[in-house]
């Protein structure tokens, strides 16, 4: 597994733990009220798990496992995947800042835009590595 995949997947595991921790607190709170402010963490719970865990893990595994060489070198353009990794994590925290930490709708919007950027860069990196058996 390449080094970049290792970093992306480790980050995904950390978000899994963060997301499950807030989920567990929210679920406990639903049964036995802990603190009213906890509901404010629901957007962070969702963001950590959907983007931080599921999307990020998928990217990490794709960077590892898509063909690097088939008929001819596929040029992994690692820099695009690196940018995707940075953007995704920046986007997640901007969204959390804009929702849970009430930093305002512009921060939330910026977070969403940066997340789109992350996916576009990841797709740019992956495009040439998605090939048929004939190499098309």
């Amino acid at each position: 597994m390449p080094r970049l995949s290792q970093w992306i997947i480790r980050a995904a595991f950390i978000y899994l733990l963060l997301g499950f921790t807030f989920g567990a607190l929210l679920l406990t709170h639903k049964g036995m009220p802990l603190h009213p402010a906890l509901w404010g963490w629901l957007p962070a719970h969702i963001e950590f798990l959907l983007m931080g865990w599921i999307v990020q893990l998928t990217m990490g595994v794709a960077f590892w496992i898509l063909p690097r060489y088939w008929k001819h070198p596929r040029g992994t353009d690692e820099i695009y995947a690196q940018i995707a990794f940075v953007f995704l994590n920046l986007g997640i925290w901007l969204v959390v800042a804009g929702t849970t930490f009430r930093a305002g709708i512009w921060v939330l919007l910026a977070g969403r835009v940066v997340e789109v950027g992350a996916v576009v860069f990841f797709a740019l990196h992956a495009w040439k590595r998605i090939v048929s058996r004939e190499g098309a």
Binding site: F20, T21, G23, A24, L25, L27, T28, K30, G31, M32
Partner: peptide
């Protein structure tokens, strides 16, 4: 019940 469920999943 929800606290137990949360702890188990965590």
């Amino acid at each position: 019940l929800l606290a137990v469920s949360a702890l188990l999943q965590w």
